[in-house]
Simulated assay, not measured.
Amino acid sequence: MARTFSVEVLTPERVLFSSDQVVSLTVPAWEGSLGIMAFHAPLVAALRTGVITIKLANGDEERIATTGGFMEVADNRAVILCDIAELDHEIDVERARRALQRALDRLRNFQDPTIDRERARRAKERAMARLKAAGAI
């Protein structure tokens, strides 16, 4: 039997994910991808835009697109607080593709001084995370 731990993913609106049958967790931390397994040492980490991957004891895998947040690991439990997060099956893939294309178009337009390049870069990151979580890229 696999060693498991509990994971909760929370947004201001809802409990997005909760299970005590998690085998492994991978999160997009600011320093790079961070993997967590049962009985991990306590830690707190800031998260960036990306995909949270949760592997369950029954073999299922959940992917969650996030725009960042924080994670705390202690007492064989991980709690992830996200500003915005979406489960893979909730993502509108076509909408994410359109958002990615708009962001890329804005980033390619070097002549227009009215374009906020940082905002376009963040929009591209969000769209890419959503598409990766949904398995579309």
Results as ranks from 00 to 15, higher is better:
I36H: 00
R122L: 15
I36N: 00
R117Q: 13
L81M: 14
T26P: 00
V22N: 01
V22C: 04
Q101L: 13
A103K: 00
M128V: 15
F70P: 07
R98Y: 06
D116R: 09
N58A: 11
T66F: 02
R3M: 12
V27F: 02
E86K: 04
I91G: 02
I54N: 01
H40I: 04
A41C: 04
P42S: 13
V22M: 01
G69V: 02
G35N: 10
R98F: 09
V93Q: 01
Q111H: 14
V51I: 04
S18H: 13
I91C: 03
D60H: 11
V51F: 03
R130C: 08
L87A: 14
H40P: 01
R98S: 09
S18I: 07
L131H: 11
L34V: 06
L43F: 12
P42K: 04
N58V: 07
R97V: 02
M1Q: 09
K132T: 13
V9Q: 06
D105I: 06
R102F: 07
L16W: 10
I36K: 02
F39E: 15
C82P: 00
A120C: 06
R106I: 07
V51D: 05
A129Y: 02
C82R: 02
G69A: 13
A129G: 09
S19L: 08
E72A: 11
R106V: 07
E94W: 02
T66L: 10
